[in-house]
């Protein structure tokens, strides 16, 4: 009557390792179907390495001003020097070094903003989806109000109230991004709430808190993770925009958006001061979005199957 196979029983630890390996293999199979996603992943990995070891990669200090090398063009142009590969800005700082250190800020902004938005959004969404009724209505209408504002404008207003600065900009962006997480979490909670395993846990006597955190939440995380990667790039973009408008990171911080803002007046004279920070933002955001698409492909069909 029991299901018997002739193979010797593997130990628990072996099984655990096998399980993890097989899940990883399956994940990688679906992820690697999407070539763009793999490229995105490698670009991001490279960025992370560069950001962590910035002092090793950067040829100069990011805030060091070379008074005799103002607005040097990139090395391959006439008048350029191999000492400043991507040229220098108006006060003689090496652009390459600033970009490399800027990667730290961008990734930091992404992590903090997404972390804040994720934490707040998922908890609120969980509460709204689980309790339904008036609680749900109040929360969702509030989120609708936030979503009704153009996101950058709202962030701008909030920074204006809180005062300019990188930290306040990050808080503002997190609040703007939060409703997306709330809606997504709520939708998956509603979806899971009537599944039989949730009813089983209720029959077993689980309290609402237990049900929300232990039973339902782990099953809602797939789409939220995907949304988180996509928000990561939004956060970087918004922070850059705030920086450009002078409301985010303040000079001389080598943040990409702030760099763009400082270079505004030289756009016509020295193309490289605006192009390279812009390209850095473009490549990072593109890489993250590509990887997010791949993640969605890899995680979503899997969720449908279970």
């Amino acid at each position: 009557m029991t299901d018997m196979t002739t193979k010797p029983a593997p130990s628990a630890r072996q099984v655990k390792r096998q399980t993890r390996n097989r899940m990883l293999a399956e994940f990688w199979f679906y992820f690697s179907e999407n070539r763009g996603a793999v490229i995105g992943l490698f670009v991001i990995l490279a960025l992370v390495v560069v950001a962590i070891f910035a002092p090793f990669f950067a040829p100069h200090e990011p805030t060091q001003q070379y008074r005799d090398a103002l607005l040097f063009p990139p090395a391959w142009q006439d008048g350029g020097s191999w000492e400043f590969i991507l040229g220098t800005d108006a006060v003689g700082r090496d652009i390459l070094s600033r970009l490399i250190f800027g990667a730290r800020f961008s990734l930091f902004i992404g992590v903090v903003v997404v972390g804040l938005a994720l934490l707040g959004g998922v908890s609120i969404g969980l509460i709204a989806g689980y309790f339904r009724g008036p609680v749900d209505t109040v929360i969702m209408r509030l989120m609708d109000v936030i979503l009704a504002f153009p996101s950058l404008l709202l962030a701008l207003v909030m920074v204006a109230v809180l005062g300019p600065g990188l930290l306040n900009a990050m808080i503002a962006i997190a609040i703007v991004l939060q409703p997306h997480f709330v809606r997504l979490t709520r939708a998956s909670v509603l979806n899971e709430l009537n599944r039989e395993y949730v009813i089983s846990a209720r029959v077993a006597g689980a309290s609402p808190f237990y049900l929300m955190t232990r039973t339902i939440l782990p099953n809602c995380l797939g789409p939220v993770i995907v949304q988180a990667t996509l928000s990561f790039s939004n956060a970087i973009l918004d922070a850059a925009a705030l920086g450009f408008l002078g409301m985010g990171a303040q000079p001389p911080t080598p943040e990409w958006g702030t760099m763009l803002a400082e270079a505004r007046e030289f756009i016509l004279r020295a193309w490289w001061v605006v192009t390279f920070p812009g390209l850095a933002i473009l490549i990072t955001v593109l890489a993250i979005n590509l990887m997010g698409d791949g993640l969605r492909d890899a995680l979503d069909p899997k969720l449908k199957r279970t």
């Binding site: 599944r195 039989e196 395993y197 009813i199 089983s200 846990a201 029959v203 077993a204 006597g205 039973t215 782990p218 099953n219 279970t306």
Partner: peptide
């Protein structure tokens, strides 16, 4: 709860996939 327990129809839906 200690007296009456239930088994559902669909064994694919009644077990928490993450546990």
């Amino acid at each position: 709860r200690k007296t009456v327990q239930i088994v559902f129809q669909n064994p694919f839906g009644s077990l928490n996939p993450r546990h």
